[in-house]
Design a protein around this nucleic acid. Sequence first.
DNA 1: GGAATGATAGTCT
DNA 2: GACTATCATTCCG
Length: 209
Amino acid sequence: MSVTSAQMARRAPGKLMREKFFARGPEVVGRELLGKLLVRREPDGWLVGRIVETEAYLGAADAASHAFRGETARNAVMFGPPGRVYVYFIYGMHFCVNVTCGPAGKAGAVLIRALEPLAGLERMAVSRDLAGDVKPKMLTGGPARLCEAFGITRERDNAKIYVSPRSDLQLRDDNFEVGRVSVTPRIGITKAAELELRYCVESSGCLSR
DNA sequence: GGAATGATAGTCT
DNA sequence: GACTATCATTCCG
């Protein structure tokens, strides 16, 4: 499949998601975020990707969570209101994007690990510095990959991702029905590694591994 | 198609 | 000063 034929969406598909959706536990939000759309406004259209893999991170009860040791300057947004973007920097070169959930004052977030790119693939390839016949998985199959494809950096931290139609980064719902979902241990962590808080759309070819 | 490896900086102790 | 996690590349069977 050629990436170069994929046009950007003229309009953002589906409807903007509401804060209420995110004001629940990370396990619920992580599961229900599968099949939803992450969109990014560009001057001449929209980048669109469907979420196919997430991980839930809890607060004080989860040793793998950034919020485990309490609130700091870095993780403060996890303790804030739901539906905000929490971006963190890892490996000295990559970003990962989370959406906060649970009520304000209680830490929780869902890490978006993989998307299936639907529109604007050519633009994503440019952002990823890839050329030629690129596989969709190389565009957005992985937390750092999708951040690069969507141009998500630390500047996005604490951005509202719900309710504001003017936001250039949104989560939207087009009532897509995901197929079978698998629940597995989370990836790339050493603490609380036994907890099964990773959610995947089984049929997707864009999973991070 | 899987395993091993190197690159790297921000955060907290 | 210790710790943390991803991706690209390379090597192997």
